Simulated assay, not measured.
Amino acid sequence: MTTLKGVPGVLAVLVAVLVGVAVAPGAASAADRDGGCDSGEFCYYYNSNQAGSVSDFTDSLDDYGTTQPSCYDFKGAGNGKGLCVKNNAASVWNRTSKTVRVYFNSNFAGASQDFAAGAKGNLNATLKNNNASHELLSGPTGCSTDGTNSKLPSTILVYRVSLGRVDRVDFKTYVKNVLPNEWVTSWPNASLEAGAVAVKSYGWYWALHSTRKTSGGQCYDVRDDTGDQVYRPSSAQASTSSAVDSTWSTRMTRSGNILQAHYCATTTACGGWVDGDWMSQYGSRDLANAGKNYQAILRYYYRDVTVS
Score class of each variant (00 low, 15 high):
I156D: 08
V158N: 03
V158P: 01
Y159E: 10
R160F: 02
S162F: 10
S162N: 15
G164K: 12
V169L: 11
V169W: 10
F171I: 01
K172C: 07
K172M: 07
T173N: 14
T173E: 10
Y174N: 06
V175D: 08
V175Q: 02
V175P: 05
V175I: 15
K176T: 05
V178S: 01
V178A: 02
V178Y: 03
L179A: 06
N181Y: 00
N181M: 06
N181T: 00
E182D: 11
E182Q: 15
V184T: 14
T185E: 13
S186F: 08
N189L: 09
S191I: 02
S191E: 05
E193P: 00
E193S: 11
A194L: 02
A196F: 06
V197K: 03
V197E: 01
Y202L: 05
W204L: 06
Y205W: 15
W206P: 01
A207S: 15
L208Y: 13
H209E: 13
S210R: 10
T211Q: 14
K213M: 10
K213P: 01
T214I: 12
T214W: 11
T214F: 13
S215Q: 14
G216M: 04
G217N: 12
Y220P: 02
D221N: 15
V222S: 01
R223E: 12
D224Q: 10
D224I: 01
D225Q: 04
D225M: 00
G227T: 09
D228P: 08
Q229P: 04
V230G: 00
R232I: 15
P233W: 04
S234C: 01
S234I: 04
S234P: 00
S235F: 06
A236P: 01
A236H: 03
Q237I: 04
Q237F: 05
A238E: 13
S239G: 07
S239W: 05
T240H: 05
V244R: 04
V244Y: 09
T247K: 08
T247C: 07
T247M: 06
W248T: 02
R251Q: 09
R251S: 03
T253R: 00
R254M: 07
R254A: 09
S255L: 12
S255C: 06
G256Q: 10
G256K: 12
N257V: 14
I258L: 07
L259N: 03
L259H: 00
L259T: 14
A261N: 05
Y263W: 13
C264S: 14
C264G: 13
C264K: 03
T267F: 08
T267M: 12
T268A: 13
C270S: 07
G271P: 01
W273Q: 11
W273S: 11
G276F: 13
G276I: 09
W278H: 06
M279C: 07
S280L: 05
Q281W: 00
Q281H: 03
Q281M: 10
Q281A: 12
G283H: 03
L287Y: 12
A288E: 04
A288P: 05
A290D: 15
G291M: 14
G291Y: 11
K292C: 10
N293A: 12
